[in-house]
Structure formats: C-alpha cells, structure tokens
Design a binder for these strands. Structure first.
Lengths: 155, 155
DNA sequence: GGGCAATCATTGCAGGTGAAACAATCGCCG
DNA sequence: CGGCGATTGTTTCACCTGCAATGATTGCCC
C-alpha cells in the first residue's frame, strides 16, 4: 500500500507551524486582555483605518462575514470598539476603536513586533526567503473558497 | 496611536497561507471521499504504521485526543478504518486501515505529493529555505504555554 | 494479592464556526 | 417616482472543537 509520510507533508507542516506560532502569540493577548484571535485581527485592522465597515474587514482580512460581525459584537461588549450605523449608507456599520481599544493596541503593537522579530530570529538565514515564500503564497490567485463545518482549519 | 500593519504580520501571514494551502488540498479529498482534515490526518498516519492507538496519533499528530477519537469513529462508520481493543492492553484501541481505506490512500497519496510539488514549484528558489524554516519552527522547543478556553485558532 | 494512582478512550458541555436564510437598506432602470 | 434586484450585517442551524469529567483498565508499591 501507499506509504505516506504525513510529517513531511508541506500542507501539514505549514498548518502545524502556523498553529504554534499563532497560539504562542495569542496566549499573550488572551491572558492580558481576554480577546480571541478574530478579535485581535479586527482591532489590529482598525488601528490602521479610521472607520471601517464589517464588509471591509471581511474582504481585507481572511475572515468570514459572520465571524467579523461576531468579533465586532464581542469587542463592543468589552468596550474596545464602537459600532454605529453609517450615516451615508444605512446598511453599513461603522467600526471605530474606543480610547480603551487604542490603549490596548498601544500595548499590543510592540509586543507583536517583538514576537515577530523573535520568530524571524529563530529562522536565521532562511528568514528572508521564508517571508518571500509567504508573500508568494498569499498573492497567488486565490482559490475560490468553499468551507466546511465547524472549527477545524488546516491541512 | 500605534499603527499596526496586520497584512505584514508574520503570524497572520502564516495562518492565512496555511489555511489556503490546506483548504485547496482538502477540497480534493472532501469532494471525492467525503472526509475532513482530521480524518485525512488519521488515515495518512495509519498508512505508515500498521496498527496504532488513538493516543499514539494524538502524540505524533498535532491533534487533540478527543479530536482523534471522533475522527476515528467517523472513519469507522464510513468503513475506512477498523477499531478493536488491544488484546494486550484493554485501555488501548487499535486502529487499522480497512481495504477500503487502503484503496483511498492509494488514490490520495499521489494526489498529495503532486499538490506538494505544485506548491513548492510556485515558491521557486525560495522552496528549499521555506522548508528549512518550517522544520525550524516545528522542531523548536515548544514554548511552555498557559492555555485558555475559547475556540480561536490561528495568528 | 489488593488497593490506588496513572493511563487511555470516550463523552458532556460551553462555545465558536461556515453556510445559508433573513431583514433592512440602497441603487438602478423603467 | 416606484418597484426590484443587489448589498450588508445579523442570526439560525448544524456541526466541530477543546477541555474537563467519566468509566474502564493497567501497573506499581506495599
């Protein structure tokens, strides 16, 4: 029968590596601010743009529409984000960081950058090529996405 | 306030890339055999070892114990895997590929390898360093983390 | 041998997730 | 101007997930 070495299989390796890297970082902001990964993504994105709709985040960040919506709701409940209907278009919801949200990003941004440097440092000479490879994978023509049930994600 | 470029953040890039690469491959075996990612991992691992316990897979593959257990149950229901109690140790469950399961792997293994080659091909000159970097991230001493609830997964 | 902690697989539970249905709103075309 | 398809955000639904509790079994130490 076909022998197959899962440990050496690229999609699997990539999934495990991503999970570890993400989890190690997520543990930091989860403990300190009680936010999850989707919430982190929303807040981080909001730190760039002034006021953004759910749709905007859904398109620019790799997240389902409902995922963004729920993350925004949780962030509002905790006081990190303010939601209001866009006065120009009643269908849009305008998301903005509150003062509390900005303070959180002021703490998290340096931590995030330091963690990124730490990871790149571990990669040593491969770091540059690694980043280049990631860019390649990300800018590639996107597969028309289909998703299946529950939480699982990778490989 | 702290500006933060999520698009250029390594853990985020890694998570998105992993998701895309995995999803593109998962779509193939999902359509053809109706199995999910955890199920694929179990079957792929079983193609190497003859008879393995749930615990064994849990340790060698990056999956929760209950996730392995449920994947094995689903695979058994669909006839790809046989479960029986280990005669030497009544606590262990011995998982084996059925003939149907082996046939599936005979189809999937070449597809998996072809897909892997395709991805590496896209990376071009960065491919080798990319694989090296992944190995580094995977073999690294795992940071001892505190763990906390919530569903989230990556970056 | 007999009790008892440890190990293993499963399951209950709380909660997150994607897809699809839904309600509200907008833009367009006649 | 008025209807109607399209867009947007939320919610429903079915299901998956991780963790902790559970039940069963083993190995160890006295």
């Amino acid at each position: 029968m076909a022998q197959f070495d899962l440990d050496g299989f690229l999609p699997y390796q990539l999934a495990v590596a991503a999970r570890r890297v993400s989890e190690a970082f997520a543990a930091r902001y989860r403990n300190e601010f009680g936010i999850s990964i989707p919430e982190w993504r929303v807040v981080a994105h909001l730190s760039q743009e002034r006021a953004v709709s759910v749709r905007e985040i859904h398109r620019r960040v790799d997240m389902d529409k409902s995922k963004v919506s729920r993350a925004a709701t949780r962030l509002e409940e905790r006081g990190y984000v303010a939601k209001r209907t866009d006065p120009r278009d009643g269908r849009l919801v305008e998301l903005t960081l509150t003062e509390k949200g900005r303070e959180m990003m002021n703490v998290l941004a340096p931590i995030a950058l330091a963690y990124q440097s730490e990871v790149l440092g571990r990669l040593g000479a491969d770091a540059t090529a690694f980043q280049g490879a990631l860019e390649t994978l990300l800018t590639e023509n996107h597969t028309p996405h289909a998703e299946v049930g529950g939480g699982g994600r990778d490989d």
